[in-house]
Amino acid sequence: MALQDKLAGNGDAFYSALMDIHEGLSEAQSHALNARLVLIMANEIADLDTLKNLFKAARDAGQNSK
């Protein structure tokens, strides 16, 4: 099932801000930052069923990648 689009008109601004926080970091630092981000966002989302659904969506979508 496709996830609902919730970013509306802010998509580009969000994406650009996400790239910005990685600016100047090594690959290892970026991976660490992403991990912190997942943890922080999980805490904000909070609901375990929602989180598990998102985990599944992320994992499933990766099956098509090379």
Binding site: H31, A32, A35, R36, L39, I40, N43
Partner: peptide, 22 residues
């Protein structure tokens, strides 16, 4: 990747109480 998540939980814990519980 497990090491990264573990270490970043520990890094977050200093500032953010939610991470302490992890």
């Amino acid at each position: 990747i497990e090491t990264i998540f573990r270490d970043e939980v520990l890094n977050l814990a200093t500032t953010h109480p939610f991470a302490r519980k992890l």
